[in-house]
């Protein structure tokens, strides 16, 4: 009887865990022409629709976008993989050519790989991206394996 009473409640409580499948959101035009992407990471801001249970809203997203040495477009999430602060390109004068997190001196190389010995345990997430009619489209940030 206790099980019969508790089972629905427990299933109710853990629903978010069982519901969450890997979602691939639609790619969104971020209003940046591919021609304007240089080899220096630049900050790109755009809006996406977010559904949070019963609450729908538009939220801001940010990426650091550049072309690597092969001309490939890279769009990195600015969210520090240590504890979620905002990471900036050359955010500290002491560390040129690196992403820098002001919270605990977390650092990342240009390709987003975390500098060993600094707090982050894995590289910055990478946004899915596509190019259509010369414009950049970005999707969901995807985590990568630790260094």
């Amino acid at each position: 009887m206790a099980a019969g009473l508790l089972a629905p409640m427990i299933r109710f409580a853990i629903d978010p865990v069982l519901q969450s499948q890997e979602k691939s959101g639609d790619l969104v035009n971020v209003n940046l022409s591919v021609d304007d992407i240089t080899d220096t990471p630049q900050r790109v801001d755009w809006e996406v629709q977010q559904v949070d249970g019963w609450y729908e809203s538009n939220i801001n997203r940010t990426a650091w976008v550049y072309k690597d040495e092969n001309g490939e477009i890279v769009a990195l999430s600015p969210i520090c993989t240590h504890l979620g602060c905002f990471v900036s390109w050359e955010g500290s004068e002491d560390y040129p050519n690196e992403f820098y997190c002001p919270c605990h001196d977390g650092r990342y190389y240009k390709d987003g790989t975390n500098v060993p010995g600094t707090p982050p345990l894995r590289p910055l997430d990478v946004y899915e991206h596509a190019v259509e009619n010369g414009m950049l489209y970005l999707g969901e940030p995807k985590p990568r394996e630790g260094a």
Binding site: A13, P16, V17, D52, Y55
Partner: peptide, 16 residues
């Protein structure tokens, strides 16, 4: 899973 269980969503700190 612990994060989702606490936050109600794997990616959002929000309504849930």
């Amino acid at each position: 899973h612990l994060l989702t269980l606490l936050a109600g969503d794997p990616n959002i700190v929000g309504a849930q």
